[in-house]
């Protein structure tokens, strides 16, 4: 019995102390643009990976291009800009995605392919193309 109590003390007390310490030195997460995320903050913290993988399949296979859980949009809101005005990779150390993931020992490969910085020219270029497409004569 005494051995059990000792075991309990050995195991639980340091763990509790660790948790306390962990909360105090949790990840420092840069704040996103605007006032709120695309869903409740608690929900995003816990389930963003599920929404992202779902959106991924919907977009690639079914051509669904809603913005809410689009990875491109996460980058638009959550990537920071350096003091010199140049955008910083959202996955660089200390930046939005990496801040949490480094803390939680999560590794993602998304930004090997996906742009990790917003690109302002993106929508402007497409709008121009739409105008060109519409204004072009059919018969040539």
């Amino acid at each position: 019995m005494r051995a059990l109590v000792l075991l309990f003390v050995l195991l639980v007390v340091p763990a509790a102390a660790g948790a306390q310490e962990g909360r105090a030195s949790g990840p420092v997460i840069p704040k996103g643009k605007g006032t709120q995320c695309v869903a409740e903050t608690d929900y995003m913290r816990r389930f963003h990976m599920i929404e992202l993988t779902h959106q991924r399949d919907e977009t690639v296979h079914r051509g669904i291009r809603t913005e809410r859980y689009s990875l491109k949009e996460c980058v638009e809101c959550h990537a920071s800009v350096g003091t010199d005005g140049t955008p910083i990779s959202i996955n660089a150390p200390g930046q939005f995605c990496a801040s949490c993931h480094d803390y939680a020992a999560v590794t993602i490969d998304c930004f090997q392919c996906h742009a990790s910085k917003p690109d302002g020219s993106d929508q402007a270029g497409l709008a121009r193309s739409l105008a060109v497409a519409a204004g072009m004569e059919t018969v040539r």
Binding site: Q123, L130, E137
Partner: peptide, 24 residues
């Protein structure tokens, strides 16, 4: 708060769609 990129793009296409001009 939904932002409407797609509808903005659709509007742009609509504006330049003058009568007699068909889409390419």
């Amino acid at each position: 708060k939904r932002r409407h990129f797609m509808s903005a793009a659709a509007a742009a296409a609509g504006v330049v769609l003058a009568p007699g001009v068909t889409l390419y």
